[in-house]
């Protein structure tokens, strides 16, 4: 379960070392934008040691490496793949070939290390207009892709528009990303909300993302993590309803009935699918019922 993903700058020990107590389901250890070019080597070694020594139990580790147009990405992977992080985030992913290039190099490293293929998954960061237009082919490029992630700051620059709190400028990209990810059968994550002091704004933004179908949302501030987790968790009312749905379906099957209603509304296959998703998530959060 991954509702929230928190960015941590890769060369900042006092932030990284607290990675497992900031409340997020995943941490993104950043070797890219948060690290100055002359400190890339230092960040790589610090992140490698932090994972090796601290392990961050119970937290998913995602490493954002540098992009293909730099000289750093192979060195990043050389250091990170032996640690078996759950996911590698690849920035500025704009087409299927980008994903396949990362995949080929990771496969080579996994073979050298004796790891099973696809031990380390990919979460391509889509942050260009070209990337958004290619979202489905990126999401379905290979089995290593577990999710895609929208980066709205770079995208807005590429679109020649301003980022706004309302997010009208990225509405198309959000919809396109969700559609592509769901069609490819992978998860999809929303861009961070960048005003760290706007507590109401993050809630509105996270609720919008959830309503559009995103799996979760990234954050650049620990302050936003709690709200994101709350928004992307099922409410007690939703959990209760999901169990009611599964119960009426069970009864309908027993009675040999093809259709059944709950609270005056027909319960059909999509409602059952959503109920199952809600129950799975509730169980993952320890809110499920014993069966």
């Amino acid at each position: 379960m991954r509702r929230s993903m928190l960015f941590l700058p890769g060369n900042t020990p006092n932030i990284i070392l607290n990675g497992d107590c900031l409340g997020s389901d995943a941490i993104i250890l950043d070797l890219e934008d948060a690290v100055a070019p002359d400190q890339k080597d230092a960040a790589r070694v610090l992140v490698r040691n932090a994972i090796k020594y601290l392990q961050f139990p119970g937290i998913e580790k995602i490493i954002r490496i540098n992009s293909l147009d730099t000289t750093y990405w192979k060195k990043d992977l050389d250091e990170m793949i032996p640690l078996k992080p759950e996911l590698i985030m690849t920035p500025k992913t704009s087409c299927r070939e980008d994903v396949l290039q990362f995949d080929a190099y990771i496969t080579e490293l996994e073979e050298k290390l004796g790891y099973e293929k696809n031990t380390v998954k990919l979460i391509p960061l889509i942050e260009t207009a070209l990337g958004v237009e290619h979202a489905f082919e990126i999401a379905s490029a290979c089995d290593r892709v577990a999710a895609i992630f929208l980066g709205a700051e770079d995208l807005s620059a590429d679109l020649h528009c301003k980022r706004t709190k309302g997010g009208a400028e990225i509405l198309y990209a959000r919809g396109r990303m969700v559609m592509a990810a769901r069609a490819a059968g992978v998860d999809v994550y929303d861009t961070p909300f960048t005003d760290v002091n706007d507590d109401e704004g993050i809630r509105v933004d996270a609720e919008l993302a959830k309503s559009l179908g995103f799996t979760g949302k990234a954050s650049i501030s620990p302050r936003h993590v709690g709200v994101i987790n709350e928004v992307f968790s099922p409410t007690q009312k939703e959990i209760d309803y999901a169990y009611e749905v599964m119960e009426v379906i069970r009864i309908a099957k027993e009675q040999g009935r093809g259709a059944i209603a709950l609270h005056g509304k027909m319960v059909d296959a999509p409602i059952v699918a959503r109920a199952q998703q809600t129950i799975e998530m509730a169980k993952a959060l320890g809110l499920g019922r014993e069966e």
Binding site: P13, L17, D41, A42, V45, L46, N49, A50
Partner: peptide, 23 residues
Amino acid sequence: GALECTLRARLEVLLSRSRGGEN
């Protein structure tokens, strides 16, 4: 107040740079 993993990391990079490594 660096932890062991940070002390080791910073020394490793210092030695690497002093040997002509990256940066």
